[in-house]
Design a protein around this nucleic acid. Structure first.
Length: 430
DNA sequence: CCTGGAGTTGTCCTA
DNA sequence: TTAGGACAACTCCAG
């Protein structure tokens, strides 16, 4: 009997899922599939909490599928090889998936597409992860925007006109699911291990007053949506539709997400290079012991240390504090943003290549539409402004007032002048 | 092609 | 105490 396949990747939900809905509407029974891609997981520790979150989300999906007389097929390996095995076991008509725009997944998907085509199987992909894909919001000459504000204006104009938008699906689409011949594996059977760090639920009640509270880390009134958007456990269409009706500032943050995604797509060199080559000649100091102190939250600046400790212990850091800690590493310690970016990538539950890279280059002043290089955050002023009660720093750095607390790794005024000089020299030599 | 205006989230100094 | 300009020019975008 012929079946269709739906391949989950970072769209881990059954509701409002365009690829899955299309597969179900096509008429044939649908086998729902997830592959732990070893090309990705081999670089991660076996107890990476993001794998735990994916596993937990798959479990939830499987329980729902069992109620619909199906079950989830979970595999681990190189996707091409796994598809090869699947085609031996099943007679497949079409493979459905939602598009992934990052460099590796895009390359993988085109290889899968070629492979399936050779076996006379169609590979259909759908827009799911964004409201607007890479080429849907561009300048009149079709070239990509490099400045956020005009991009945002064009995005909002299209959105208001309903151009290229999909409406969030209300009801679940009916269709037949196939029961997998594999039973649902344990985390250990997959070669992974349990981790205590958890992705919590998101909280949409904060959207209403987002602009008012978003800069105060102690208030803890951010939505915590980011890991859910990263892995698709929530639909971006539902969130954007709520945001556009509720809070413009919050909506703009979602537009930043798509801005950096299209930057990564059109300028993939940003993964390794400065967006602005005039900063290629910055002579980074890259002092290893200072970098370790930054990683461990031992710089002697409470707001920096609090942020890094929050990251290390929870896999999350408040957005305001991300800017402060990133700026501190690049400007005060004159450490190449690539080191900081890699560290955040290893720790953040909501790690997204486009946003992490875009925001690190923003903090370093090397990115497109980045902070001007002479804007150097003063970690003490930032602390006074955004954590005036000391509640946030006190929570993560309880020893901050005791003699045991370290002396600052570098004096602010000295570091500021040193950074300005390093950036000046780079620009002059360019 | 030319041109004017604008550009996520700051800080510091001076009057 | 507080408001305003300098930082240092540049790139991008729209008309």
């Amino acid at each position: 009997m012929k079946i269709n396949l739906f391949w989950f990747r970072r769209d881990l939900r059954l509701d409002d899922n365009p690829g899955l809905d299309s597969a179900l509407m096509a008429g044939l029974p649908v086998l729902v599939l997830f592959i732990f891609d070893t090309n990705i997981t081999e670089d991660l520790p076996p107890d990476d909490p993001r794998i735990g979150f994916i596993y937990e989300s798959l479990g939830k999906i499987n329980r729902e599928l069992v109620l619909k007389n199906g079950s989830l097929c979970i595999l681990k390996g190189d996707p091409l090889e796994e598809f090869g095995k699947l085609l031996q076991a099943y007679s497949v008509d079409t493979v459905y998936a939602n598009r992934d725009y990052e460099p590796y997944p895009a390359e993988r998907d085109s290889a899968v597409s070629v492979f399936l085509k050779k076996h006379n199987i169609r590979f259909l992909t759908f827009k799911d992860h964004v409201i607007y894909e890479k080429d849907e919001v561009v300048k009149q000459d079709k070239s990509p925007y490099r400045v956020f504000t005009p991009y945002k204006n064009a995005w909002l104009k299209r959105f208001a006109a309903g151009l290229n938008t999909q409406q969030p699906a209300g009801e679940a689409v009916e269709g037949d699911f196939v029961k997998s011949s594999h039973s649902f594996p344990s985390l250990e059977q997959l070669g992974f291990r349990e981790n205590q760090t958890r992705v919590g639920p998101y909280d949409l009640s904060v959207i209403k007053d987002y602009g008012k509270y978003r800069n105060f880390p102690a208030a803890d009134r951010t939505s915590r949506l980011s890991p859910h958007l990263r892995f698709g456990t929530v639909s971006i269409r539902k969130i954007v539709s709520l945001a556009s009706a509720t809070n413009q500032v919050f909506l703009e943050e979602l537009i930043w997400r798509e801005f950096f995604m299209q930057i990564l797509f059109h300028f993939p060199a940003v993964v390794t290079d400065n967006f602005r080559p005039s900063f290629n000649r910055i002579r980074w100091r890259n002092n290893e012991s200072e970098f370790r102190r930054w990683c461990n939250g031992e710089t002697g600046y409470p707001i920096v240390d609090a942020g890094m400790r929050q990251l290390n212990l929870t896999g999350f850091m408040h957005n305001r504090v991300r800017m402060i800690t990133a700026g501190f590493l690049c400007k005060h310690l004159l450490t190449d943003w690539r080191f900081g970016e890699a560290y955040f990538a290893s720790k953040l539950l909501d790690y997204e290549l486009s946003s992490n890279n875009g925001n690190w280059q923003w903090a370093a002043g090397t990115g497109c539409d980045a902070a001007q290089y002479f804007r150097i955050f003063n970690p003490l002023t930032q602390e006074r402004k955004f954590d005036p009660s000391g509640e946030y720093t006190g929570k993560w750095v309880p020893e901050k007032r005791s003699p045991a607390y370290q002396a600052p790794v570098v004096d602010h005024t000295f570091a500021r002048e040193r950074a300005m000089e390093a950036y000046h020299i780079s620009m002059k030599e360019f």
